[in-house]
Design a protein around this nucleic acid. Structure first.
Lengths: 218, 218
DNA sequence: ACCTGAACACCGTTCAAGT
DNA sequence: ACCTGAACACCGTTCAAGT
């Protein structure tokens, strides 16, 4: 929604807070993750960071020390789920039916990103501009696995050659966002079906798409 | 975000600041619209309202008096374009090739909503929750025209019967958003083509899974 | 009837002081 | 090495006073 996001963001001096050494700090991280999970569940991915810190029983500064950005916290809470999806994608890579496996994986990815209200928007944002955050790193991992699945399906002639991984993933996220906001749980399946029907490689050639020059403004 | 009086949208009791009577007020509205157009163009649809007021040479309070929300201002700036698209849709309704006309109109709608950076997100948001704003009213108008075009295409058997107008329009907006954020101008056409291929009604349309391990390709 | 802008409110973020 | 929370900064919004 914002235009001012991560633009002036200088590259962090160090990979920030990778496993604190001191026991109390490690404990605080755990408390923060638990609190964030609870708060995200109740109020969505846009929950107040102050509330999360309070719920964890630590100062707001402590939260910022361990998680410099909201996206870092989000990614951390989703860590296990993220790893599982990546793993799952690799597994599907060896199963028969390249196109079907890609579709299946995307559907599971969408489910993953539906854990909290507002999560699809946050992840999609992290997808389009790599803000050097832990969440962007997760997106990169997804992109890599998705690319492999897509390439295989394309090689098998099941998916159109001009399909782009990120675009496909982002479109799937859009479907989830639409379903979330329109409060219609059946929308995801319907939209994903449309997406994959559209992605299917057709023997028929170039569509008679309305090719009109994109004028500037208005 | 809060109470929406968009319930039972009868003839609005007082459509908020509909054409001020006093000449200086009318002049201010014009100045604000011009300033907003310029500011939106330069900084995107999320431009500072304070900057817009300053640019128009009026106090921030005056802006709020005439445009209670940012969406009202956005919609007002787009008024002419909005009317043109609606008009266009009605015209396409009488031209041959129901499916193609729908696709053409959606493409033009997407172009309309691409006037400013960040506009797709604002419009999509107004689409999913009717906030009683002038922008939501525009969305309603688009939905009405789109519904007519879609219904005609469905009746002609060119578009799948389970397609929903709002979902189609929102998906098209998503495509525009993706293209905007990934900075790939070719993405819109590619994604819209996928969308419309997916929307195409298929002769064989059993609701079963597309599982067919048999020999594909002729 | 309309305009003004200081004041208010609500976040998110930093940093000096403390353990 | 890490924690704390007041202070700061940045918007968006309101409203008492003014014309």
């Amino acid at each position: 929604v914002e235009e001012t996001s991560g633009f002036m963001k200088t590259t962090s001096p160090a990979p920030r807070a990778a496993r604190p050494r001191r026991a109390d700090a490690r404990r605080n991280v755990e408390l923060l993750v638990a609190a964030a999970d609870a708060e995200f569940t109740e109020r969505g991915a846009g929950a107040s960071l102050e509330d999360i810190a309070r719920r964890a029983g630590v100062g707001i500064g402590t939260l910022y020390r361990h998680f410099p950005t909201r996206d870092d916290l989000i990614a951390r809470v989703l860590d296990e789920s993220t790893a599982a999806i990546v793993e799952r994608g690799r597994a599907l890579l060896t199963e028969p039916g390249p196109g079907a496996q890609l579709a299946r994986w995307i559907a599971e990815l969408v489910e993953h990103v539906t854990a909290y209200r507002g999560l699809t928007a946050a992840v999609a944002a992290a997808y389009v501009d790599d803000n050097g955050t832990r969440l962007s790193a997760s997106c990169d991992a997804f992109t890599a696995v998705g690319a492999a699945l897509l390439a295989r399906a394309q090689a098998a002639g099941e998916i159109r050659a001009d399909a782009d991984v990120k675009e496909v993933i982002l479109t799937a996220h859009s479907a989830a966002w639409i379903a979330e906001r329109t409060r219609d749980p059946t929308a995801v399946d319907r939209l994903l079906r449309i997406l994959f029907d559209g992605l299917r490689a057709t023997a028929a050639a170039p569509a008679r798409a309305p090719r009109r020059p994109r004028s500037r403004r208005r």
